[in-house]
Simulated scan of single mutants.
Amino acid sequence: MGGDVVGSVTETVKCLVWDLDQTLWQGILLENDEPQVPEEIRDVIVALDERGILQSIASRNDHDQAWEWLVKLDLAEYFVAPQIGWGRKSDSVRRIADELGFAERTIAFVDDQPVERAEVARFLPQVRCYPAESAGSLPSLPEFTPAVVTEDSRNRRKMYQAGTRRETARAEHTGADDDFLRSLDLRMRISRATPGELSRVEELTRRTSQMNATGVHYSDARLRALLTDPDHEVLVTTLTDRFGSHGAVGVMLLAKHPTMWHLKLLATSCRVVAFGAGAVLLNWLSDQAAMAGTHLVADFRRTDRNRMMEIAYRFAGFAGDACGCVDVITDDPGADGVQRLHLVPERQPAPTTMTVLAPDLAGGRDD
């Protein structure tokens, strides 16, 4: 690959953008060739998909004709946000990054033409560019090898495609927003994390920044120790609707003391903010604490990105000391400067826009 690769290779690629002619397939559509996909390339597409690396297309071709061939070749389902038309490749790659919400440094581009790779590298210097002849070896490269592949990773493409259908339905809905949410048949499941789910939980504490109450990252080892601690609850939240699964969307770390429950961490995925997932979780926890007759305390540390989480806590009724004399939590690694917010919990009504399936923390039995 030599000098063709542009940008840092220390970060895992989140999306690989393919050219079509003489790259993904052999043949040139404009010359009336019948495209053929080498088995090696098909294996690469499947392997990256199973690792949770999304794939897209930036190709100069007639859209309908190219997409028809992708369908015939049983490959269309693997590609999200495809850009097939007659514009510059750099513009296509930029649109893909914007639509997916990915930083350009997490995008890779493969093309058989040096001039096309050079054009992308000029206008998008953080995008990593690879020649077509190296496509077969991409899965062996460290930047295409995530450290951990979770269940959510393996389903990432399907979750994105479900999200696209969901957004289309939202755009077509003409009624109140709550009516649309009820039409989704949302089902939230809160459960005690199992050892097999720890990678998903750890990933949430690492990847979530806007909706992370403290910004503290809990390692797999730290989470594993908490799992076996009888005074702690490690709770993972998943969400599904009529379009499919949202995957793991929330994690709560709760220390249960005789007269106080201490919510050390709440982190939720940004992709479910519009569904009110954070508020539902806080109301459920408040309801559980009220049934247990215990005070509820939550950690919060302001970062440059988590203002929305602070609003969620305040809206749920949590408050710090009015004079600013808040306690500082020092019992967790990396938790310097964390405020202790207080709530006298009250029983809460069930949410009207989703069904919640959850354990009974107050009584110790699962629903």
Rank of each mutant, 00 (worst) to 15 (best):
V6N: 07
G7S: 11
S8A: 09
T10E: 11
E11S: 12
T12I: 10
K14R: 15
C15R: 06
W18C: 02
D19S: 13
L24R: 04
Q26M: 11
Q26V: 14
E34Q: 13
E34K: 05
E39H: 10
I41C: 00
A47G: 02
L48M: 05
E50R: 15
I53V: 15
R60V: 09
R60L: 02
D62H: 11
W67P: 00
L73R: 09
D74Q: 14
A76H: 15
A76Y: 05
E77W: 13
Y78V: 01
Y78H: 15
F79A: 01
F79S: 03
V80I: 12
W86K: 04
R88G: 03
K89Y: 09
I96E: 05
E99R: 15
A103W: 02
F109P: 06
V110W: 02
E119Y: 03
V120D: 04
V127T: 01
C129L: 06
P131Q: 11
P131T: 05
E133K: 14
P139W: 03
P146C: 11
A147V: 00
R157V: 00
A162T: 04
L184G: 06
R189L: 00
T194M: 07
G196K: 04
L198F: 04
L204S: 04
R206T: 11
R206M: 08
Y218H: 14
A221N: 09
R222D: 10
A225W: 00
D229E: 13
D231F: 09
H232Q: 07
V234C: 02
D241I: 02
D241R: 10
F243S: 04
V251I: 13
L254G: 07
H257A: 05
M260T: 08
M260K: 10
W261K: 03
H262L: 13
K264G: 13
T268A: 09
C270M: 08
C270Y: 12
C270Q: 12
V272T: 15
G276R: 11
G276C: 08
A277T: 13
S286R: 12
Q288H: 04
R305S: 05
I311M: 11
Y313D: 05
A316F: 00
V326R: 11
D327E: 15
R340K: 10
P345I: 09
V356T: 09
L361N: 02
A362F: 06
G363L: 10
R365L: 13
